[in-house]
Nucleic acid binder design. Structure first.
Lengths: 233, 233
DNA sequence: GTCATAAGTTGATATATATCATATGGAAAA
DNA sequence: TTTTCCATATGATATATATCAACTTATGAC
């Protein structure tokens, strides 16, 4: 009977959370998680968590794409990073506070897997190997975010834009051709520049045959040159 | 006899590492650490670790002040953050890689306490409470660094400068009057602007009676106004 | 001490980027 | 359908900031 529950609730063959995280848990602990886990779907533009919300559940992005951003009244949104499953941004700052420091919003239809926070915390405080693995992943993802942020800070406008376009092509979609999951305004909020200038730079990239654009559709035509701009531009 | 070793090697009444971290360790584990720990002193401007160095030792800043920065040939230095003891930046990224991602350099004469990395890792993988505490601290300090970085990114030049001056006054020295531990160039590398403009903005702050400067000595004269600039400027 | 090098300073100018204005197309709401 | 709103787009202009040049003042090496 319990076996059946496991089969029913944890039939998530694509779930990296299962494959990677839960390597350290016992059969019965896995079962606990499988029994209480909940899946929740979000449409594009829906907030998954908001800054200031109290942590109640540990959540893991199973499918989709999200932006991690800072929303402040009186000033423009700032996008910290864009993340897909396996990037583990979902656990960023989970152990630093009782409340979310950032807002996480779906950019594409997304599926999130929730587990009661106290259960995860109790595993982490009892099972050192699990905790260590979690810490390593947490550390890696924050490191990547921080390095990316410093890169973007250093570059000029065109460099920032090239960097972001290449992130979509190389990291997120793994394709030279993709539909932008963000508006021009969001690219601007990510780069930390004005929307108009992002639009102008996109037009210039097109003029210079670096990319092809039609609406949301982007194709990278000259990746070498774009890479160069993303490093030194 | 062993008691004596403990007394000799761990008589560090000001060591937060001892008071906070090692709350979770057994007497004999503490003793292990006390026996192998080494203290090392660094002068201002000396590198404590360099990007690319292999992790061999866990280190904790016991005394002094350091900058965490990215050194790249061909482009200017970027200062990620400035940290003092208790800020725990020393453990940033320790679990994300075998190699340091950043360079850490002393800004003031500093004392660092070293413990063999494998010992800490073995504690973290065996003692869950220790690991959890470590993870919480790690998470808190990276959160603070990331929020600070996003703040600095959002602000204009004078806002950035005000933010940095207030960090020295409020967080690092806890005094309205202090000696700058950095050059104008380093302030510029921290803010991500040119040295000349930092100098000009400092001169303007002086003209507007917000600060008093003579060489490295700074006094905050109008903290309210400066705080306002650091938020909206 | 004096020499050399780096830090600090200031002004003039160039450049990158923001802002403002205005227009168009499309998507959602009435 | 019409209306409204927002994303996209482009030009003109304003502003922030970088860069270049020249100079002074500290600081450490010999």
């Amino acid at each position: 009977m319990e076996k059946e529950v496991l089969t029913l609730n944890c039939q998530c063959e694509n779930c990296q959370l299962r494959a990677l995280f839960f390597a350290h848990l016992q059969q019965d602990e896995m079962l606990d998680i499988c029994n209480i886990r909940k899946e929740k779907s979000f449409e594009s533009n829906e907030d998954i968590v908001r800054r200031g919300d109290k942590f109640r559940e540990f959540f893991y992005l199973k499918e989709g794409l999200v932006k991690l951003h800072i929303v402040k009244s009186g000033s423009e949104d700032q996008i910290i990073t864009i993340a897909k499953p396996l990037d583990f941004i979902s656990i960023l700052s989970i152990f630093s506070s009782d409340h979310y420091q950032y807002t996480v919003t779906a950019l594409l239809p997304s599926v999130v897997c929730n587990v009661d926070m106290s259960l995860i915390k109790s595993f982490a405080t009892k099972n050192a190997a699990f905790g260590f693995d979690l810490m390593t992943r947490l550390s890696k993802s924050t490191d990547i975010v921080l390095l990316e942020t410093m890169d973007l800070k250093r570059l000029q406008l065109k460099g920032k834009l090239a960097y972001i376009l290449l992130k979509f092509a190389n990291h997120i979609f793994k394709s030279e051709r993709f539909d932008l999951p963000v508006t021009r305004k969001e690219i601007a909020e990510y780069a930390g520049v004005s929307t108009e200038n992002i639009i102008r730079a996109l037009a210039e990239f097109r003029k210079d045959q670096l990319i092809r654009i039609s609406g949301k559709e982007i194709e990278i035509l000259n990746k070498n040159r774009l890479t160069q701009i993303s490093k030194f531009g």
